[in-house]
Amino acid sequence: MVPLEWYIWLATAVFAIGVAGFLTRRNIIIMFMSIELMLNAVNISLISFSYYLQDLRGHILSFFVITVAAAEAAIGLAIIISLFRNKATVHADEMNEMKG
């Protein structure tokens, strides 16, 4: 049987990739994808904990995470589109209306 640690290391690695992607990439869509990657890393860890603990809570939470991520995607993309209508860019560095 695959030990629990492997799954947790996998989840941590995927989460770290997501964090690194969010911090280094400047395209808003790719930053958003990195956040989704982080959420899915959390799902991996939740499901593996849930399986090894033989407890359903982790499964339930992961379903909620998937649902909320869908809502978040809908709202996030809507916000990005409304920005794009006023200024045709998806580059984070070009969002510089406010400074100080």
Partner: peptide, 18 residues
């Protein structure tokens, strides 16, 4: 229709989701 408001929402959204 305000660019500043759009920008605020995008920044808030990205960092909040993060």
């Amino acid at each position: 229709h305000s660019l500043r408001s759009n920008e605020a929402a995008v920044k808030y959204f990205l960092l909040g989701a993060f």
